[in-house]
Each structure stands twice: as structure tokens, then as C-alpha cells.
Nucleic acid binder design. Structure first.
Length: 438
RNA sequence: GGAGGUGUGGCCGAGUGGUUUAAGGCAGCAGUCUUGAAAACUGCCGUAGGGGUGACUCUACCGUGAGUUCGAAUCUCACCGCCUCCGCCA
């Protein structure tokens, strides 16, 4: 959420910046509501002040044993009038709030302007793209060839966009997550966190998924209750990312200055309805309703957030370097950034079968955008509460890392070499190969 | 699922209808004293928002939401969290 003061004082500049994100702020409607709000709020408060004084007089008179009937009849009318003003004000304020919750974050000045993916800027590349002396297969062909990846069973159990892994592949998947967690905890100073996978509406509003992106989420109700017909709110939502759980740790909190920065890491499943992506990435593990991710979150002092963003992206890159997977880092342009981000770097890993780079991590500085929604603050050196800055990044998406390993480490005979750093997590196993006779 | 208890500022804690402007304490900040620090003493010290160029002023907020009342931290109802016990359960 943006600071409403900013909209009151500098509306033109703000709307211009929002336009670069393909968001068009409802200027007329906002101005109209603001004008009414101002007028009605003043009148309401005036009435309240009159009522308060009168009530005090009644109390005073009664304590002296005087007659109060004259004041009582006078104040009685006031009550009805006040009620109308209050209802009116409440309605206007909730409409303004609705507008505010819908507005995306302002892009940072260093973010390139652009309308979509094609305007993102590459800022660096790392690693050597493997040259194969055979036709590189994609991860589905590799996994199914090894009898370790089973989309048919997953479809039977659940449906499309689910997967089932077995044996060495399931273990490799676990090894990847363990390796990522250990690296971030032991080398990058993160606090390991186990979080709920089901969260409430307030949490999703805090990080910006709600109220705008409800259709991207999965909803859960206890005991098979329905909620749509009787207009109840859902009990829980499945997290689309651990960013929600980790960032909301500080919702409605005032954090001590000396405890900053907070750095959390969690390995969780993520659940996404993928409502807007029918027909996109339908093959393989790239786009699933359920996937695992190791998520990194920083809660920092506002002066530190851009330093923290660089740290965050380098923490994510470290994983790819350790696994020797080639990648490039992109700065997302204004038109391609997520709702809550002021600046985002994407890491894209090389996938030989597609002969292209695909997103494997996204690291964002949300500045005070989420903190304002969450009322997440710290006590500054003058003792005053001030909004924190929040950052989040994948470190990394586990499923896509598995895809990258299968494709980049594939051999001519259909086997896959296990990256060296993962072998300790695999009981020393150095290759995934088809079991004899199967 | 059943029974009982409980929720007040950053923290602890008093407050059962009317000068509550939420007592008192802790923590924090400033000062006096001191070579310096501690102690002691003195003062300041919640959040959000509105109006005003400004000194200032007004409003709301005691878990959340409704209600009763001229007036609610205080009374009523619902919900949520936490604690204790019973049942069930991994």
C-alpha cells in the first residue's frame, strides 16, 4: 500500500509512475472521495466534540444533584444526526481503502521503464553453457526414461499440473532443498523457520496477494463447509509462497532496532491455481499447482534495504554457483514487476532442451509497501515507530532447480550425474541411472 | 467436542457507567549532581487520523465486531487468541 499522504500531496507524479507499470490510478474517483471525506470527517468530529462536552456536563450536573432534563433532550437529537455522519464517513473511508489496496508499489528510480518481459535488462551472466555431443533431452524425457518421474500417477491422484517422483529423483529433490537450507543457515546467516502452509486473509492482504489476486490462490475450509453461497470468508488459504508466512511474522509488531535485520529462511510447498496460464508450460515440472521452494526474507531498516537486495540476490546466486548451473541475472522493467515490488531481480537458469534461460528465482525489495499493509514497524533512534522495509527472494525454486540439474547434467546413455555438492545428501550416490532390468 | 478462567500502552499492572486527560511501576529520552559512570532526584515519554501558515486544536483507539446509553476500558451478545482441566487424536 502506498502512503495516502503521497497521493494527497503529489498525485500527478505518483500517477505518472504508476502508468509505467501499466496501472492507471482512478484520479477522478479518488479526488471526489477525498473531497467528500474531508468535509464529512470534519463535520463528524465536530458533532462528536459537541456530544462529548454535553455528556461531560451531564455527569458534572448529576454529581452536584442538579436537574439534567434540558441537556438530555438536546443531546438526544445529536445522537441520530451523528450516527448518519458516522455511517457515511465509514462508507467513504472503506471505498478509499479499497482503492488503496488495489494500487501496486511505485517502481524505484533505478528500474528501467518498459511494458513487458522484452524490456527487462540483463545485468550479468555466470557459468559455461554445456555443449552436448548428442541431442539434449528435456527433463520429462530424462525423468521418465529413468522411470523416476511419473505424471500419469500424479494425474490419477490429483489431475493436471501435479507430479510424482520416485527413488533417486525424489531423494535428489529432497537433497536440493536440504543443501539450500544448510547453505543459507550456515553461510548466509539466516534463521531457519518452519511455518504454517495455511494462512488467514489478513496475512495474504499483508503481503499483497489479497484482495486483488484471489483467483490465483487455493482456498481451504474445515469440515467441507461451503462459503460462497452464504458469503462467509474462507477459513484458510494455501500459501502461494513462504514469503507470506515469513514476512507476516512481523505483522502488527514493533521490532526493536537492535534486532534488525531479521533474516528468515524456510523450505515449504507452494500452491498456485495458475488461473491465468492455461496452455502455458503444460509439459513437465516447470509450472505446477504444488511445488517446493526455499524462500528468503529480510526485514530491515529503510536505509539498508537496497544493500539487502544485493545481498539477497547474491545469496540466491551462490546456490547456482555451488551447483555449477549457468544463469543470468535480469532487472525487471516497470511493466513486468510484481504487485508489491519496488525493484526486482530475476535469476534465470540455462535449460539446454529449450536452449533458453528460465526463471528460477525472483528477488524483490518491497520497501515499505508490505510493511504499511501489515503495520510492521521498528522503533527508530528517537523512539518513534517507523515502517520497516521487507524483501523476499527464492533461494531457490526446488522443482526448477531439479529440472536444471536433470537437463544440464544429463549423459548420452540417459543417466544423470549428481552434482558434487549434493552427493553428501545422497549417501554418496554419483549418478541416477535406470535400475538393471527395469 | 465439554467445563472454567483470561485479554488494558514497548513491557508489567490498577481500573465494575460520568473531571479517565487510563493510576502506579519498568524500560527509554533529557537534565541536576559527578573527573566519568552508577545511584538518587527532576522533567519528558502511546498509536493513527482530521483542521489550521502557525503557537495550537479536534477525533478515534483498552483482543475483534456488533449492541445498550446523553455518556462504555467498565454493561449485553457474537467471534478470535491464550491458560487450566476432561474427551479425542499424530
Amino acid at each position: 500500500m502506498l502512503d495516502i499522504q503521497l497521493l494527497r500531496t503529489d498525485l500527478n507524479q505518483v500517477t505518472r509512475k504508476l502508468n509505467t507499470r501499466n496501472y492507471h490510478f482512478p484520479v477522478d474517483r479518488f479526488n471526489h472521495l477525498e473531497a467528500r471525506r474531508k468535509k464529512i470527517q470534519t463535520q463528524t468530529q465536530e458533532l462528536q466534540a459537541r456530544r462529548n462536552t454535553a455528556s461531560k456536563q451531564i455527569g458534572l450536573a448529576k454529581s452536584k444533584g442538579e436537574d439534567t432534563s434540558a441537556i438530555l433532550t438536546e443531546v438526544a437529537q445529536l445522537g441520530d444526526e451523528l450516527k448518519q455522519f458516522q455511517d457515511n464517513l465509514e462508507q467513504i473511508q472503506s471505498e478509499l481503502q479499497k482503492i488503496m489496496l488495489d494500487v501496486p508499489n511505485l517502481p524505484h528510480n533505478s528500474v528501467p521503464e518498459g511494458t513487458g518481459e522484452e524490456d527487462n535488462q540483463e545485468i550479468r551472466r555466470w557459468g559455461k553453457i554445456p555443449a552436448f555431443e548428442f541431442e539434449a533431452k528435456d527433463h520429462v524425457a530424462i525423468g521418465e526414461g529413468l522411470n523416476l518421474l511419473d505424471f500419469e500417477s500424479a494425474a490419477k491422484l490429483s489431475g493436471a499440473r501435479f507430479s510424482l517422483m520416485k527413488d533417486g529423483l525424489a531423494r535428489l529433490h529432497r537433497a536440493i532443498a536440504q543443501f539450500m537450507l544448510d547453505t543459507h543457515i550456515q553461510e548466509h546467516g539466516y534463521t531457519e523457520t518452519y511455518t504454517p502452509y495455511l494462512v488467514n486473509r489478513d496475512s495474504l492482504q499483508g503481503t499483497g496477494q489479497l484482495p486483488k489476486f484471489e483467483e490465483d490462490l487455493f482456498v481451504v475450509n474445515a469440515g467441507g463447509k461451503t462459503f460462497t453461497e452464504n458469503n462467509q470468508t474462507p477459513d484458510y488459504y494455501l500459501i502461494p509462497t513462504a514469503e507470506v508466512s515469513l514476512t507476516n511474522i512481523v505483522r502488527n509488531e514493533i521490532v526493536a532496532l537492535k534486532s534488525l535485520p531479521l533474516k528468515f529462511v524456510a523450505h515449504t510447498p507452494c500452491f498456485r491455481s495458475e488461473a491465468g496460464s492455461y496452455g502455458k508450460d503444460t509439459r513437465g515440472l516447470i509450472r505446477q499447482h504444488q511445488f517446493d521452494k526455499v524462500e528468503l526474507v529480510h526485514i530491515v531498516h529503510p536505509d539498508e534495504s537496497y544493500t539487502a537486495l544485493e545481498e539477497l540476490i547474491s545469496n540466491a546466486e551462490k546456490i547456482l554457483q555451488e551447483l555449477d548451473l549457468p544463469y543470468r541475472v535480469m532487472t525487471l522493467c516497470t511493466g513486468d514487476m510484481g504487485f508489491s515490488a519496488a525493484k526486482t531481480y530475476d535469476i534465470e537458469v540455462w535449460l539446454p532442451a529449450q536452449k533458453t534461460y528460465r526463471e528460477i528465482s525472483s528477488c524483490s525489495n518491497c520497501e515499505s509497501f508490505q510493511a504499511r499493509r501489515m503495520q510492521a514497524r521498528f522503533r527508530n533512534k528517537n523512539g518513534k515507530p517507523e515502517l520497516l522495509h521487507t524483501l523476499n527472494g527464492s533461494g531457490l525454486a526446488v522443482g526448477r532447480t531439479l529440472v536444471a540439474i536433470l537437463e544440464n547434467y544429463q549423459n548420452a546413455d540417459g543417466s544423470v550425474t549428481v552434482p558434487e555438492r549434493l552427493r553428501p545428501y545422497m549417501n554418496g550416490l554419483d549418478q541416477l541411472r535406470i535400475a538393471g532390468g527395469q
